[in-house]
Design a protein around this nucleic acid. Sequence first.
DNA 1: CGGAATCCTTCACGATACTG
DNA 2: CAGTATCGTGAAGGATTCCG
Lengths: 137, 137
Amino acid sequence: MHHSVTHWEPSNSSECDRAILPVSEVLAQIAGKWTIFVIRALSGGPRRFSELKREIDGISQKMLTSTLRDLEKNGFVTRTITPSIPPRVDYELTDMGRELHEPLLAIGNWAQVNRHRVEKARERFAEREAKERELVW
Amino acid sequence: MHHSVTHWEPSNSSECDRAILPVSEVLAQIAGKWTIFVIRALSGGPRRFSELKREIDGISQKMLTSTLRDLEKNGFVTRTITPSIPPRVDYELTDMGRELHEPLLAIGNWAQVNRHRVEKARERFAEREAKERELVW
DNA sequence: CGGAATCCTTCACGATACTG
DNA sequence: CAGTATCGTGAAGGATTCCG
């Protein structure tokens, strides 16, 4: 993500769809490490910068700023400055941001529900790998 | 993605959810640059390695291998070897893989449908930026 | 055909320090 | 409070070569 998203070619999607803005670019935005968490935090309503920082565990100040800027640039979030002392900045999902939140939530829920299955699958894979190594040696 | 997924801490999700396998790790897997495209290609049924390589435009051999291995490791894909000459390897979505495909498809479709809105938003953002620069200079 | 191994570049992200 | 600026690093990803 960020400013210089790798701009690769159309990718044979469907009907010779001249990719004005390739789907993959939108996807790349979503794929950012913190994007989903920021959107989830904002889905509860407007938040101040420091509130987001507190709510999203482990995010650095730099990445929060950067993620918010990208979300704003792509039209998912609005940034409202209240020139007071100390200054106050509120972030809020746009309509488009709220729309995006739905399928994102579906993915998040799926991951939440199915993480144990994934974990099991990993263990089985590790076992198969070990067996193979036995045969080789 | 790949082997060393950054293993960060729980992230204040919901109810003190001891994160055995953090949701974010599952998400990180999905976030890989090519994961969505590979799953989409496989959603049409089993595919050979070379078929996938041809269908997914722009993917390198290395990344296809790597993405498939990760998907296999996490239980989303099966790998079936037919020892013939030349060798033949088929990849197929597991049930879990097909389940994951649904919310992924939703995201993909959303991105497809809304890319023009995103594009517009970017233009407006660029304009606002330009205006600000005028005021400064 | 279906990879593995190697080299190399870019950049996403983190840590730290400073500012209006 | 809400950032910007800078530096450093691991790791993602591409290109190329070699192999059973």
